Structures are given as structure tokens and as C-alpha cells.
Deep mutational scan, measured.
Amino acid sequence: MTEYKLVVVGAGGVGKSALTIQLIQNHFVDEYDPTIEDSYRKQVVIDGETCLLDILDTAGQEEYSAMRDQYMRTGEGFLCVFAINNTKSFEDIHHYREQIKRVKDSEDVPMVLVGNKCDLPSRTVDTKQAQDLARSYGIPFIETSAKTRQGVDDAFYTLVREIRKHKEKMSKDGKKKKKKSKTKCVIM
């Protein structure tokens, strides 16, 4: 069974824990209790493949930012979460993405942009803004509501699919490099 290491990042209060708990335990946590770091595991079937999701729910508070490099190193894919009623959390996505790329030393890291709290009427981040940002990053965008469960499975499952595509691409690139290195030079 394939294991996928997913990391949920975003500013404090955007609903990272609520999304994760909704996926794992099928219930909505409405009281806000700032996370330092929590880890969850769940076995699911995605596109006919049974897999184990190892999900790291991270601290959004700035005082825990020193811990970010460590979990970013171990993560295979990242859910970059903002709240649709919090423009600052949307603007912060850029910083999370840049930090992930720096730590992973790669421009090509599996990510999904997630606009959470889409059940709320007080939207300050337009869907088109988020779609445009995701398009500019070359990553999928999904709106979710941890409260109603809308888009929750889709967000995590899409990230797994992005990781699969990335692994497939990397193995193809690896095979191309191996083929090239088999060419021999004969000096007579």
C-alpha cells in the first residue's frame, strides 16, 4: 500500500485542523484551538488504489514558523489553505509557496490551493482571484467548507493525484537520464 505524506499549511484560523478532522473523523470542530502540530493517518481508496494518507496539520501562528522547514522537508505534497473571508490569509499563500519551493529546492512541488469556509456569506476573496492565482502557479484550486464537508475529500484526493503525477514524471525523467548515460565512448 502506497503511503502519501501530505502537509496542510496556511495562516492561523483558516480551518486547516477543521478540514483535516472532517476528512479523518467526519465531524466539524467549530471551536478554535490553535494547533502546534498534529499528525493523522487514514486509509482510503483513490482511483481504485488503496493508500495510506499521513497528514500533518501544522501551526499557522507566526511564533511556530521555525518548525516549518522541518515538516516541509518531509512532506510530499501540500494543501495551501486560505479562508475566503480573510484576504490576508490569501496573500500569505505566496509566502508559504515560496518557502516550500526553497526548502524542497524545487520549482515543481505537488500543491493544491484550497479556499476554505465557502459556506460563509462574508467572502472577501473572489473565486476568480483564487483561480487566477492557482493557474499562475500551475496547481489545482478547490473551494471547501469544513463545516458542510463540501470539497473536503476532493481537496485531499486531488493532492494525492498531483503527487502521483509528480512521481510518474520524475521516474520518466530518471529513465531518460539513465538511457543517456548508457551511451559509451570508444577510443581507438
Rank of each mutant, 00 (worst) to 15 (best):
D69K: 03
I93S: 04
C118F: 12
E107S: 12
Y96T: 05
Q99T: 07
P110Q: 03
R97G: 08
A83I: 02
E63D: 11
K104V: 10
C80L: 14
F90M: 14
E63F: 05
K101S: 10
M111V: 05
L120T: 11
P110Y: 01
N116E: 08
S122L: 09
V112M: 05
L79Y: 02
V81P: 04
R73T: 09
G77Y: 05
F82W: 08
R68T: 04
G115K: 04
Y71F: 06
N86G: 13
Q70N: 12
V114K: 00
F90R: 08
R123Y: 12
R73L: 08
V81C: 12
L120A: 12
P110C: 04
K101R: 12
N116V: 15
E76Q: 09
P121I: 09
V81Q: 06
T124S: 13
R97E: 08
Y71T: 02
K101Y: 07
S65W: 06
K88Y: 07
T124E: 13
E107Y: 10
N116L: 15
D105L: 09
K117R: 13
V114I: 13
A66H: 03
E98I: 01
Y71N: 00
R97F: 15
Y64M: 05
I100D: 00
H95W: 08
F82D: 02
E76A: 09
H95V: 08
D108S: 10
T87H: 12
Q99W: 08
E76D: 15
E98T: 06
E107H: 11
S65V: 08
D119E: 10
C118K: 07
D69M: 02
K117P: 01
F90C: 10
D105G: 15
A66L: 07
V114S: 02
V103G: 04
D126P: 07
G75F: 06
L113M: 09
S106K: 10
D69L: 01
L79C: 05
I93V: 12
M67G: 09
N86I: 03
A66T: 09
R97L: 15
Q70C: 08
T87R: 10
Y64P: 00
P110D: 02
S106N: 13
M111P: 02
E63N: 06
L79A: 05
R102V: 07
T74L: 09
D108Q: 14
D108E: 11
A83G: 15
L120M: 13
G75W: 05
P121D: 14
C80E: 02
R102I: 07
G75I: 03
N86A: 06
E76G: 05
Q70R: 02
N116M: 15
A66N: 07
S122A: 11
R73H: 09
D105Q: 10
V125T: 11
K117D: 12
G75M: 05
D126E: 11
V125W: 11
D108K: 09
R102D: 06
S65G: 09
L120H: 12
C118L: 10
I84Q: 15
E107W: 13
R97I: 15
N116Q: 15
T74I: 10
E107V: 13
M111E: 00
A83S: 14
F78C: 01
